[in-house]
């Protein structure tokens, strides 16, 4: 098909539309508070890295970053570890109600997070898990395990069953086959599943906010809290916000090829 000469305009406009808020955030983080609050400038007139210095120099900012990274990593590891055997079962075995169960797992994602904030809060308080990393990590599993199972099942079903059988025929035990042969084959799927778990857990605010109030406060909570307070330090907030985007960007950079493969396989 012959493309029009101006075919690039629509995607260019769309990308501009998407990039504007991100650019604005980054630009703000490099401005002084005076410039932010008094003038409308497209780029920093007085380029400053003071805001970043303040974030890195502040123990409270450092700890909320660490907290978020901690529970997000925990959640990613747990979700993928739990989803691997589940996805294998769904992809390889037929059992009573397997299709319903698979769908039911996905429906867990249909409820808004706010619905679960209250029961989690009550339940974890009762077990003394309140305000711990593992509390948030476990709560996020409710959403991430089904997602990871769904993604991994797609990748696993792309591996011929005969490879499993050949491994058994060769004499491999199931654990040896699964770890040494099968997991490397679906490495991209594991990468994609981990990516989605990481992203969801990283951006999720409501449950993290409800379960980790003070000792393990997540980054999103602190951003939110400070932007509502009076006498907001806009520049520092923008710097912290920019830094919040970075882990996601790094993860995306590493899994970008796998994601494309995932799309090709009809999942993700």
């Amino acid at each position: 098909m012959k493309q029009g000469r101006f075919a690039w305009i629509v995607p260019a406009l769309y990308i501009l539309f998407l990039m504007t808020p991100i650019y604005w955030l980054v630009a703000m983080s490099l401005k002084t508070n005076v410039e932010i609050t008094t003038r409308f400038t497209l780029w920093p007139e007085l380029l400053t890295f003071d805001n970043y210095a303040k974030v890195f120099g502040d123990e409270r900012w450092r700890s909320v970053f660490a907290n978020s990274l901690m529970y997000v990593s925990l959640n990613t590891v747990i979700s993928v570890a739990v989803a691997l055997p589940a996805a294998y079962a769904f992809s390889r075995y037929r059992f009573f109600g397997d299709k319903h169960l698979f769908f039911w797992l996905l429906t867990n994602r249909m409820a808004p997070a706010a619905v679960f904030a209250l029961p989690f809060f009550q339940l974890y308080s009762a077990f003394g898990l309140f305000d711990t990393h593992i509390a948030v990590a476990l709560a996020h599993c409710l959403f991430n395990v089904p997602l990871a199972v769904w993604i991994l099942e797609g990748f696993m079903s792309g591996v011929p069953r005969e490879i499993d059988e050949t491994a058994y025929i060769d004499g491999h035990s199931f654990p040896s086959f699964f770890v040494k042969i099968f997991m490397p084959l679906i490495a991209s799927g594991i990468g994609v599943a981990a990516f989605f778990c990481f992203m969801f857990s990283w951006v999720e605010y409501l449950i993290a906010d409800a379960l980790a109030r003070s000792a393990v406060m997540p980054i999103t909570t602190r951003l939110q809290a400070l932007s509502q307070a009076s006498g907001t330090d806009w520049g520092v907030l923008a710097a912290a916000g920019t830094l919040t985007l970075i882990p996601g960007a790094i993860v995306i950079w590493f899994v970008r090829n796998y994601i494309a493969k995932g799309f090709a396989l009809g999942r993700v």
């Binding site: 011929p160 005969e162 490879i163 059988e165 050949t166 058994y168 025929i169 491999h172 035990s173």
Partner: peptide
Amino acid sequence: AVARRNVAMVYQQFINY
């Protein structure tokens, strides 16, 4: 179980690791 039997199998599809 298949792992305990001394068998080898070659499929129509080319199955390797």
